[in-house]
């Protein structure tokens, strides 16, 4: 079942075309990797899918909300890991706080960072911060999860853990789109790899 359909996507920034005519789909339970060098346009495509940047042309069909994990995690610096995960369920989904906190702890536990729930973002390692960011994105129950350069701050052992986590999330029925320039990581977790070069899709 197709969860994400990108059709003839154009992205322009400051009068310059960043992405041109990109089309692809992703199915339920599929891990799709956008591969390419820095500046190829991968992150721009993810941002457009997440609804952060306007489209220059084309269309995107996706069920909202969309979960997104950023390269630098961007945890809210003024609150604990747990509060980062609870924020949107309480204030956007309007769930009762007690229920949200139990669910947040379950998510953090399942990602192996349950013991860090009370820590502030600056006290977390790169890997821990990333897993908290994944928990935060999953807390709004998205059917599609976007990840931008997820291996940038991870050592090789952690990369293996992350690949396993993404596969598990896919098995649970989520669609995952990853932007990376890390070919080895793409190999271990991708069902399908799309090559992006100069803002265009090269092959699949």
């Amino acid at each position: 079942m197709t969860m994400l359909a990108v059709r003839s996507l154009d992205i322009r920034r400051a009068g310059r075309t960043i992405v041109s005519g990109v089309s692809f789909t992703a199915d339920r339970g599929e891990v799709v990797v956008l591969m390419g060098a820095s500046g190829a346009g991968k992150s721009s495509i993810l941002r457009a899918i997440a609804g952060l940047d306007p489209l220059g042309g084309g269309s995107i069909d996706i069920p909202r909300p969309v979960g997104m994990v950023f390269q630098f995690h961007h945890l809210f610096a003024n609150m604990t890991a747990r509060a980062n995960v609870c924020l949107a369920p309480v204030h956007v989904l309007r769930r009762p706080r007690a229920e949200v906190e139990i669910r947040a702890q379950e998510l953090l536990d399942s990602l192996g960072v349950g013991h860090r729930a009370g820590a502030m973002p600056h006290e977390l390692s790169g890997g821990e911060a990333q897993r908290v960011a994944i928990a935060r994105a999953l807390a709004i129950e998205p059917r599609v999860l976007l990840m931008d350069e997820p291996t940038a701050s991870l050592d090789s052992a952690r990369r293996g853990d992350l690949a396993a986590t993404l596969k598990r999330l896919a098995t649970e029925g989520r669609t995952i789109v990853v932007a990376t320039h890390d070919a080895a990581f793409a190999e271990t977790c991708a069902h399908r790899v799309l090559m992006i070069e100069g803002g265009r899709l090269q092959s699949s």
Binding site: R47, A50, G51, L52, R64, P65, V66, G67, M68, F70, F72, H74, L75, F76, A77, N78, L87, A88, H91, V92, A133, R136, A137, I140
Partner: peptide
């Protein structure tokens, strides 16, 4: 800005982002 983008992808309104994330920091 990254934190504000993260808050937007979570579905928070601009007002909520100001009150909950931006202003406290």
């Amino acid at each position: 800005i990254g934190q504000l983008d993260a808050a937007r992808t979570l579905g928070l309104s601009e007002r909520q982002i100001l009150m909950l994330v931006r202003a406290p920091q």
